[in-house]
Every structure is written in structure tokens, then in C-alpha cells.
Design a protein around this nucleic acid. Structure first.
Lengths: 139, 139
DNA sequence: GTCATATATGAACATATGTGCAGAGATTGG
DNA sequence: CCAATCTCTGCACATATGTTCATATATGAC
């Protein structure tokens, strides 16, 4: 039942349901898009950056030193982190005098942060215990 | 205008708006929660794992070898990746004979993948060009 | 039982990543 | 102009991470 399929690099790979594989390959996100997706997720994949983002989610807008005080980090680290987030379009900077004020870029980001937090709050505790139905998406 | 605030570690940090900082600190996600959030995001922060997840999003359920064929990876790598995703509760495994079939764990994950993809499709192109209004969340 | 298949695991290596330090910009006030 | 303040950047180091190879487990066929 196991068939063969010639990959793009010419390397033979075993497949079981070649029809479904072909169909999925056609619908799959492109490598470029997948790369961008993973880059965005990787940016969110750091405790300190996450804390900065959720601080901005709560506060709306904060300057670097207040962000540092809020999440209890060195200002240099905050600056490094914010540059990455800014470059990726996750946060936006506004200068006021010698201070820079940062905020989340848009509602999409806010939704993403919110949704993920809900996911952990609803599902993680269930997985630890009896793992029951977990359908709801309320707040 | 710049005040001082004694951090938890006893290190003095400069603050501008100490009231807002205090308020934000109270509302901020806990360190534990932030850690879990970042761990989840970090899992999604890899091109290959992302491609696997979006393959499952399209296909519904696939065995390891078909997943490997779909995203053009070595089966060992796929297995390693799936273990991480499984441990974190992002995917779920089902055994059928000698094969293991994987699927996304729940609708929360599907929503997360979908929302993020929408974010990149709508916002990323705009940032490259003139950066206009980007409010909509349709599909 | 043996063999073949499908997947999982462990270890090792190369690379990527976050952090802190030193110093550079940028802006304000005198 | 200079000094002070707030933030940014480049470099270096320690750690973390993904991938590969070899091997182990598990199931089914004979």
C-alpha cells in the first residue's frame, strides 16, 4: 500500500495516501509565507518580549524606562527587544522629546495576544487534569 | 520629573510615570503565565513546525510519512518536531496499526494559525508599501 | 519465532539567540 | 558651545535550538 513520491529535490519519499498528500501540498502555505509566520511566532517566543507586549497590551503606551521598570528588565535589553519587535511591525514607536513611547502596532496583534492567553487559560489546566471538552471561546 | 522605583531585586530603576507603571505591574501577566505563553509561541517559531501545522490545518489528519512527504522533510525531523508539539498539547496523536496519525489539538489552535496568517496577509504587504489603514479582520 | 515497516529516541554537532557591557546618537536645558 | 538624560547599537560570550546519524521500540506479515 505504501507508494513512492519524487520530492522536489529528487529524493524518493514513502507515502501512504498520495492523493491526500498532493492535495495538501497544493493548499499548503508557501515556504516564504511559512518563513514569515515562523519569524513572527519566534519573536513572540521569548519570555521578556512577551512580558513587554502584554505590558503594552495593558498600558496602551509606555516609554522605554517605564517598560523596563514594569517588567523589571535592564533598559538595554528592553531596547534590544523593542527594536526586533519594531522591525517586525509588532510594535510602533513615537518620539516625544528624548523619550520613545511604544505601543502595539494594531488590533491584529492585540487579538493574537488575547487569543493565545485565552487558549492557555482554558486548555492548559484541563490537560493537567482529566482533559474534558474544551470548545468554548468566550471571555 | 523622573522618579525612582525599587524593583523586586532591590535594584533602583528610573521611571517617568510611576502610577501607570504600578498599575500596569498589577495587571501584567505573571511570570509563569508569560513563560507558558512564550513557550507556546517558540514552538510555533520554526519554519518546519509551522509548515507541519499548516499542513495539518489543511489535511485534517496525516501520518508521519505523509507529513514528511507533504512538507518535504526527513521523517526523523518530523518525528522530533511532532513530539515537541504533542508534549505542548498543540497536536494530538492516534495510532492505527504501525502508523501514527496526527491532527491539530483543538479549535483554539486552528484559530490561532488562521488569525496569524490573516495578520501577515493583510498587514505585511501594506507595511512594504504605503502603510495605510488596516482595520478589517474579514476573511 | 524472524523480517520488514513505521515511528520514536538519544547523542553530537553546527548554528542561532539573548544578554550585558561599552560607547554612540539624539534631544533638552543652561 | 557643554553637560545631562534617554535611548540605541555593535560586539562578545554563554546558552539554547534544530538537524542528522545510529539505534531502539512497536506493530504487522510470514
Amino acid at each position: 500500500m505504501t507508494g513512492k513520491l519524487l520530492g522536489l529535490d529528487g529524493c524518493a519519499v514513502k507515502v501512504v495516501d498520495s492523493a491526500r498528500v498532493e492535495e495538501t501540498r497544493r493548499r499548503l502555505v508557501s515556504r516564504d509565507e511559512a518563513t514569515k509566520l515562523s519569524e513572527l511566532f519566534r519573536l513572540l517566543g521569548d519570555v521578556n518580549r512577551v512580558r513587554l507586549l502584554y505590558a503594552l497590551l495593558e498600558a496602551g503606551e509606555l516609554c522605554v524606562c517605564d517598560l523596563a521598570a514594569t517588567v523589571d528588565m535592564a533598559e538595554t535589553s528592553v531596547s534590544h527587544a523593542l527594536r526586533l519587535l519594531r522591525t517586525a511591525g509588532v510594535v510602533r514607536a513615537r518620539r516625544d522629546g528624548r523619550m520613545m513611547f511604544y505601543r502595539l502596532e494594531d488590533d491584529h496583534i492585540r487579538l493574537l495576544l488575547d487569543l493565545t492567553r485565552q487558549h492557555l487559560q482554558h486548555d492548559a489546566p484541563e490537560r493537567k487534569s482529566a482533559k474534558k471538552a474544551k470548545r468554548r471561546l468566550r471571555r
